[in-house]
Structure formats: C-alpha cells, structure tokens
Design a protein around this nucleic acid. Structure first.
Lengths: 196, 196
DNA sequence: GTCTTTATATTATATGCGTCATATAAAAGG
DNA sequence: CCTTTTATATGACGCATATAATATAAAGAC
C-alpha cells in the first residue's frame, strides 16, 4: 500500500532508530533484520526497500547512535567554566545510569570490540565518532592550558570508555560500582575537578 | 576410536586453547563449535564428549584467555623498581604489537562488550580476571605511595583497556596509532614514568 | 474515475549453526 | 584372543536468519 510521499523517509528513520538501539544493546551480530522491522511496526520483507543489506543498515546506524548519545549531553553548556564542563561530562559518562542504559548511551564502550572485527568502511565511521567526542572534550582541556589538548582528550576518552566497558562486563555489582567510582576519582584528582 | 588414557584430557586442552584464541579474535557469537573442533584436528561431533554446550566452552575458555595473556608479561619482574615495572606493563599494553594481536593479547579490550551481554556466571569469571590484573598493577602503585592503590589500579586499567579497544576499532591507522601513543603519554606523565 | 506507481506484506529459498543419536574402531581388561 | 569400554566420526534434525521474488493496496497523476 502506498502512503504519503514523506512516509518512506519517516519509516526509514524509525527503522534506523530502532536498529541503533538494538545494536547497542545486543551487538551487531545479535540483531536480526526481522526483529528491527517488527519493532518499527513492519514485517521483514519491506526491509530491502530501505537498505541494501544488513551491513548497510549497521553502517548507517552508527551515525544515529552517536547522535543519540550526544543528545544526552546537550544540557551541558560548552562555554561555561572549563572545569565545570569537564566535570559534567565525566560525571555523566561514569554514572551508574549511563552504565545501565546500554541501548541509549555512548556506543564506544559497548561496540568497540564488535567494530574492531568489522569492515574498514564501518570502522571509519566509528572512528569519526571517536574523534568527534574527543574534540568536544578537547575544548575545556585547551582552556585549562593543555598544550596538546587533542592528545590529552584522547587519553581521557580512553579512560572513560574503559571504565564503563569494564563496569558493564564484570559480574559483581560491587566491583562494577567500584570501577566507575575509582575511575572517576582518579580523573577528578588529575584535572583538579573536585568541588572544594 | 580409543586412544591412550590421557588422550582425552590433552584433546580437551587443545580444544580449549583454540577456542580461547578464536573467541578473542572473533567474539563469542562469531565462533562456531565446528570451527573450533576443526582447528583442533577433530570433527564437530565429538565436541559434546568434552563440553556440555557451547556456553560451557566459552565459560571455561575465559580462564585460558587470561592465562595466555598473563604469560606474555612474565618477563617483567614484579619486584623491580616500581616505576620500571609500571612502565613495562604500560609499554607492552599500549604497544602496536599488542593492538595487532587480538587472538593472543588481553581479553579485556576485545571482549568486555560481548561479555556485558552474557550470563551472570560468565561475567563473574570475567570479573575475576579483571581483579587479578588490577591487583598486579596495584603492587607498584602501592610502592609509589598511593594510599588506595587498588582503586588507582582500576582507574589505570580502565585507561589501558579503553586505549587498546579504541585503537582497534577506529578505521584510520594514524588515529589508531595516536590513540595508543596519546594514552601512553598521558599515563607516563601522570605517574612520572619518563626516562629522563 | 481510471491508471500507474510504489511502500509494505507474504511467501519462498538457502545457508549456517547448535545439538544429539548412532556408528566405528581401537585400547584396556580378562 | 575375545570382550568391553570409550574417544571420536558420521549424519540428521530443527531453528534462526539474510535475501529476494512476488503480491497487494493505496496514493498521486491524468
């Protein structure tokens, strides 16, 4: 059946959004085309009217995932006091809430393992997302006087990503909380972000 | 056909070793029982004489993976100068060689994403491996005077893991090298591990 | 109002995989 | 030397999945 002309674009967007959520939650290998289409309220047959293949869907969904995650930090004003900005990013990233919402949070901790095994083209898009986040962290670091703020931001991002990845993977809840808290403490001390 | 009495144990070990390699390289979801058995020189049918299920194999292989990775740092004498010990760990972990040998290196950067989606029992074993590595990093940190060396070691491990995970996932080789180098520089500076 | 176009649905095909029942052959025990 | 035991092999079943060919029905054009 035919719907109004923008219907297809809307549907495509819906499929992409569902895919982005499910991929983060389950990993690209564990999402099925049929499942994504069902969540979008459609049957799996129509999928290939929107995307050439499952790989193409995954590749496109990467952009959606990074956009989703970025939206969660939109409340943070990047032009505020650099220490406050940095602290807001760190507090959010290493929060239990972020750890516990795999399907809505940053794709890096969940998916870097999976995409390390993916096609170069897919990894390139992932790399662009990494650089985009690093650039945002680099701004307050530059204001704090770091000569090579971009390099420092990559090191900080690595620590944030590793902290959340490990906190999600260890079984013991106490250890998981400790991973987040200890990582956060170390960062706050290093950049002198404590509230005194 | 029947072989000498210790043959079964040897075979089991071989299967486990191949599984540990393949799981790190491809992720647990992308390894097939038949493939692991073929690498061990057997056909897939005999698998269930050794393991109750694929899940059981994966669970057991976690121990093998951590042992494999630990063996690669055995040259480092943990009783040497704490700065030298720490630096040796960091240099190894963030080396391009470690990044490029997914099937033999530390399981944390490759698999924390996958195991975040696994059964609690599996994640518990993974968590034990995390704590074991953190404990080894904590020793030199304690000698350097860190009051809560265990907490500091978790923060450091997070950064090491994140650095390697991101370096493996980004497509651009230059960015990948930068991820390793920038993360390493930041750590060396923080703990004053530079050779002067 | 009829015709054409097209977004979505139905159905089919092929493949890969986990699991297991059964077969085989060689070692160990008598 | 014959029997029993058991490590591994063969083959089959069932399920999930990616892909694609075809069907359907409604929107837009004339």
């Amino acid at each position: 059946m035919r719907y109004s002309s923008e219907h297809k674009a809307k549907t495509r967007e819906r499929v992409l959004k569902e895919a982005a959520k499910e991929i983060r939650a389950k990993g690209p290998g564990n999402v099925a085309v049929a499942g994504v289409m069902a969540r979008a309220g459609l049957t799996h047959g129509g999928f290939y009217a929107h995307f050439a293949s499952k790989d193409a869907l995954v590749k496109e969904a990467i952009g959606t995932m990074f956009a989703d995650a970025r939206a969660r930090t939109d409340k943070i004003d990047p032009d505020g006091d650099p220490r406050a900005v940095l602290r807001a990013y760190v507090d959010f990233y290493l929060s239990p809430a972020h750890r516990d919402s795999r399907d809505r949070g940053c794709p890096l901790p969940t998916l870097s393992g999976d995409f390390a095994r993916s096609q170069p083209e897919t990894r390139k898009r992932f790399g662009a997302g990494v650089e985009a986040i690093a650039s945002r962290l680099a701004e307050p670091l530059a204001q704090l006087g770091y000569a090579d703020a971009k390099a420092e931001s990559r090191a900080l991002l690595a620590q944030l990503v590793g902290g959340v990845a490990l906190a999600r993977a260890v079984g013991d809840p106490g250890l998981s909380d400790a991973m987040l808290a200890d990582t956060r403490e170390s960062i706050l001390r290093r950049y002198e972000l404590e509230v005194r």
